[in-house]
Amino acid sequence: MPAPTAFMAFSSALTGFSLVELFGTGVADTYYDALVHILSQATVDELLAAYEPGGEAGLPRLLAHPLYGPLARNVIKLWYTGSWEQLPPAVVLRLPVAPVDNVPRVISAETYLEGLMWKAIGAHPMGGKPLGYGVWAEAPAGHTH
């Protein structure tokens, strides 16, 4: 299902990537669907509801929360790596998460290739989106001395 606006705003604040960059991955809906599947609609709604009143300014508090914090960090890692990381046992105890859904895994070949960490580090996913012959000989962009 299409990722709701609240999820996109939450994701943008968490990742440091703009909405256009997030949509530009083409996998926003995939991530939202995966979260709903793994955590349940109710938990995702609860997480977004916890974010919305404070917005970006409230993120430090949210990230310190014993339940929302680990969930939010998993959302960051989902966007950055394209993979689901196993939630810690303490969190799983409080959630209706099926163990089979909480295994670490790459969501799809496409999410692997769209992981934002590759963009953040000024590179490209290993094995995809190559920069072309010889580009590795050029100075990295954002080169700071």
Partner: peptide, 13 residues
Amino acid sequence: AEAAPAREPVYDS
């Protein structure tokens, strides 16, 4: 290296 900005938009801005 100096000519690299021609391709800058591909990198993180």
